[in-house]
Design a protein around this nucleic acid. Structure first.
Length: 590
RNA sequence: GCGCCCUUAGCUCAGUUGGAUAGAGCAACAGCCUUCUAAGCUGUGGGUCGGUGGUUCGAAUCCACCAGGGCGCGCCA
């Protein structure tokens, strides 16, 4: 166990148990052991006395005094005293604290990994963009947040499955097939005009982008004229529609996977909506719900206040989502009898549950906010004990030199995810996307993130890591810089305030990982790495004024070894965090 | 009209799931380059945590209502 707060929670509990054995376990659970808000209060603070005072019929400060005295007997605790309304502040023995550097060096980038998740299986679904075209920049945030969250949960000890739900059923994909078919006919040299073709497409020709041209050419190369009528004219849809749809979706998914790979995002499982329908998963799930009386035919009320232009009351197949916390019951079938998107997604979630996942996390765009309640209701209906959590990712405003970038397909400024990655690089995209809470809107300035200054958080953190590596490279000729060797150093040389501050920041890492994982908030990693970098840059700079704080001191090999251990530990924690976020720790800045 | 999310320093945002005197960066001002990378560091000023009530030892955090912004609201996905 490397989370020192977990260690001392046990220490505090044991102390309480010795002083007041009558305190019930349930009361003990509310007891918090945390970093104090103000570092001058010590290393660790506990609210134990305040939480227990009522049960013990004493006042917090009185019990706090006893607890502090008891805690002070612990070997790793230098001092414990009562402050404020009854906090017990603990100052750790500096030697014990420094020895944690050994833990970091021993663990390597596994430092911060924990068993908090206890191996519980979690299904994290993210991206799930429609396979109707290349990935757009709007998909970037969800992709990064989902992927980083998956990595974070894995680091915290969950058994994570990264999943992509392919929306390959329904009208959009139908329209895609027609659009690809048009490119196929063009590849064959049809004499038909686009206007004429548009006229025969149900709902009109959509997806007119060039990206389907190669798809049409591939279809032509593979199938020749067999999917068309004489003269490269359109044939009956029954002849080609399924084939074209299947192959076009496959082609789009291949492109999407490549785009995601360029972002360092990958999935373990791709679930096909069409396959779930084909395998009758959706139908069987709805039958189960019907058997339980949760599906009925009814007429919905029009939304109040909003003028329903063409509102007509009509009977629909509805799911009783209101029984599970939703605002209205939700339709499951379209008028042509086919399933709604929601119905299929119920099947998707039933499938996850059937595969043994009782913890499901969805990463959605903010425009799906209105969809959360109904899906939560469906999951609850399927399995009351299952956990269902949604991360809504708010919109990202792309800026260039402080000016908003307007993107539109029509204006020809269609910005794909690939464009963005090519422009600023994969690591920058990933890091920046994690510098805000996912449910807060964010600004992404393409110029700012390329600046080699501390205004650019990506640079700032990467630079700290590169500086560490640079120091270790310089020292390598004269010292054994292997972590195992450095772990043997006498850390007590590290007595300066700036050094201790850095050590405290490093040692806080396992707790940050655990808290971020349990809260599903990967951005906390980025913020903590920023703190680590700041502590390190501060120490580095202090070494300029006070020569005895410099890392490499040829005349003082023992002190140097201890400092190199600190530098190595810093690099290790930053690397541990960046790798969890899917960002490459760099060896040097170029 | 209803639901969800948001509102914290001039700006962009954190705030450890209810803790102590609410923090960082930018911008402003004042300093620091004989050096393992100054691509950085140090200091100063700056707040009615949107508002009003409530819950309790204790609220930016939880609850209610109100104001402002965003998203959504019967067979799109």
């Amino acid at each position: 166990m490397t989370n020192i707060f977990s260690i001392f929670r046990d220490v505090v509990r044991e102390a309480v148990a010795r002083l007041a054995p009558e305190v019930p376990e349930a009361t003990l659970a509310a007891l918090g052991v945390e970093p104090p808000r103000d570092a001058s209060h010590g290393d660790i603070a506990t609210n134990a006395a305040m939480v227990l005072a009522k049960a013990l019929r004493t006042n917090p400060r009185a019990f706090g005094e006893k607890l502090a005295a008891e805690l002070a007997t612990h070997a790793a605790i230098a001092r414990a005293d009562v402050a404020g309304p009854g906090f017990v502040n603990i100052a750790l023995d500096p030697t014990w604290l420094r020895a944690r550097l050994g833990d970091i060096l021993e663990a390597g980038t596994d430092y911060g990994s924990s068993t908090a998740g206890a191996g519980e299986r979690v299904n994290v679904e993210y991206v799930s963009a429609n396979p109707t075209g290349p990935m757009h920049v709007a998909h970037a945030r969800g992709a990064v947040v989902g992927d980083a969250l998956a990595g974070l949960l894995a680091k915290a000890g969950f058994a994570v499955t990264r999943e992509y739900y392919v929306n390959d059923a329904g009208a959009q994909v139908h329209a895609l097939a027609w659009a690809a078919y048009w490119r196929y006919l063009q590849a064959l040299g049809t004499t038909m005009t686009e206007e004429a073709f548009d006229a025969i497409v149900p709902g009109g020709l959509q997806y007119r982008g060039d990206y389907l041209v190669p798809v049409g050419e591939a279809l032509a190369a593979k199938h020749g004229l067999s999917l068309a009528s004489a003269g490269a004219m359109p044939a009956e849809p029954s002849l080609w529609l399924d084939i074209v749809r299947t192959e076009t979706v496959a082609s789009m998914m291949e492109e999407i996977r490549e785009d995601l790979a360029a972002l360092g995002v990958s999935h373990d499982v791709f679930v096909s909506e069409a396959a779930l329908i084909e395998a009758e998963v959706v139908q069987r799930t709805l039958e189960t719900l019907t058997d339980r009386g949760l599906i009925y035919t009814g007429v919905l009320e029009p939304p109040k206040g909003q003028k329903p232009e063409d509102w007509e009351p009509r009977p629909q197949t509805l799911f009783r989502s209101t029984d599970f916390g939703d605002d209205i019951d939700r339709p499951l079938r379209k008028s042509d009898g086919s399933f709604t998107y929601f119905a299929n997604d119920i099947g998707n979630h039933a499938d996850k549950l059937a595969r043994g996942f009782r913890r499901i996390v969805q990463v959605w765009g903010a425009d799906h906010g209105g969809y959360v309640k109904r899906m939560a209701a469906a999951v609850k209906a399927l399995d009351e004990g299952a956990s269902f959590q949604v991360l809504l990712c708010q919109i990202v405003h792309l800026l260039k030199g402080g000016e908003p970038m307007r993107m539109s397909k029509r204006a020809g400024t269609f910005v794909t995810l690939r464009d963005l990655i090519d422009e600023v690089g994969r690591d920058v995209v990933r890091f920046i996307m994690l510098t805000r809470r996912s449910d807060a809107q964010m600004e992404f300035d393409l110029d700012r993130v390329r600046e080699q200054t501390k205004d650019n958080p990506v640079f700032y953190v990467q630079y700290a890591h590169a500086r560490c590596r640079s120091v270790l490279r310089h020292a390598a000729g004269q010292f054994d810089t292997h972590p195992a060797a450095l772990a043997q150093a006498d850390f007590d040389v590290l007595a300066d305030e700036a050094e201790m501050a850095l050590i405290r920041t490093l040692v806080a890492w396992p707790r940050i990982v655990e808290q971020a994982a349990l809260a599903c908030e990967p951005h906390r990693l980025a913020f903590h790495l920023y703190d680590v970098a700041a502590a390190f840059h501060g120490l580095w700079n202090k070494g300029r004024d006070e020569a005895e704080l410099r890392f490499i001191q040829p005349e003082a090999p023992e002190a140097t070894r201890a400092r190199l251990a600190l530098v190595q530990a810093t690099a290790t924690v930053i690397a541990s965090g960046l790798l969890t976020m899917g960002v490459t720790p760099v060896e040097e800045m170029r």
